[in-house]
Design a protein around this nucleic acid. Structure first.
Length: 263
DNA sequence: AAGAATGTCAACCGCGTAAGA
DNA sequence: CTCTTACGCGGTTGACATTCT
């Protein structure tokens, strides 16, 4: 019974690849390709590895066109959009992202993107339910372009429908109670628009945002832009105005402290 | 400063399926 | 047509890194 293993476990090395192994695999594949047979390839390349392991190492790490980390807002939007349509078809999703592997996309979704979406939905829900302050305050900036922000906002709710979007009523808050980028604190209306795009490449707006006392430290690899995200998320989620003073161009800011009463 | 908790990501496992004998 | 084999994929694990207490 059971499936014949693709290789003898005791005879192959497992675990992390050494630089020497990487070099042996890389040079062999670049010279000969996989030869159409990953199972026999390790032997030919002088590697004591399972063929599957070699294939995985090449596809996920050694291929010259691979990009690691630093997912852009546009990639976030593509992943979110395709995930909502296809589910966990990581290879399909990855095929739409140049230089990304299914493993990379899967890891990125499971460790970061999904949590951001959950946090976004949870933050919205928690404000109205006075949850403890230990709840993550905001998602890291997933969207520095209007399209990406809109996609993120739309799917944050649609992917996690169990988390209700709160009703928000007018109360008086100070700017310090909200997630407002430094640029907005200084001159909200002059700073509106454009700042998020600049932040996406880690330039001035990102550092300005991260320097704001109440701003999330988790700007992530995509840079700042929480402001843009929050604006669009709240607007896209149909939230009402929390405070007229914080109704800025493009949408509304959301309270930093989940214990604040908005309802 | 140290231990615990949490996050990240490379690698492995096993199933479904395509291709070839 | 059936069986075998290898590939490709998605889920899961575990080691290491980072952050928190």
């Amino acid at each position: 019974m059971g499936r014949t293993p693709c290789c003898e476990r005791a005879a192959v090395k497992r675990g992390p690849w050494s630089p020497e192994e990487d070099e042996a695999l890389r040079s062999y594949v670049q010279r000969h390709g996989s030869g159409g047979n990953w199972i026999s390839m390790p032997k030919k390349a002088g590697l004591k590895r399972c063929g599957k392991s070699c294939r995985l190492r090449w596809l996920n790490y050694l291929r010259p066109d691979i990009r690691h980390g630093g997912f852009t807002d546009e990639e976030d939007a593509v992943i979110i959009s395709l995930y909502s349509q296809l589910g966990s078809k990581w290879s399909l999703i990855a095929s739409q992202l140049e230089g990304r592997t299914d493993n990379d996309v899967k890891n990125y979704w499971n460790t970061k993107l999904k949590k951001r979406l959950l946090a976004a939905a949870a933050t919205a829900g928690n404000v109205s339910t006075r949850s403890p302050p230990s709840v993550p305050r905001l998602p890291a900036a997933p969207a520095s372009t209007p399209a990406a922000a809109a996609t993120f906002a739309t799917h944050a709710s649609s992917l996690f429908p169990s988390l209700a979007i709160p009703t928000v009523k007018t109360e008086m808050y100070t700017c310090d109670d909200f997630l407002v980028p430094a640029a907005f604190r200084d001159d909200p209306f002059a700073a509106a628009g454009g700042s998020a795009d600049a932040a996406a490449d880690g330039s001035t707006s990102a550092s300005a945002a991260s320097s704001a006392s109440n701003w999330s430290a988790d700007n992530g690899a995509v840079g700042g832009g929480e402001g843009s995200f929050l604006l669009d998320f709240c607007a896209g989620s149909g939230l009402g105005a929390a405070d007229d003073h914080l109704q800025l161009p493009g949408g509304y800011y959301y309270p930093l402290d989940p214990s604040l009463s908005l309802v």
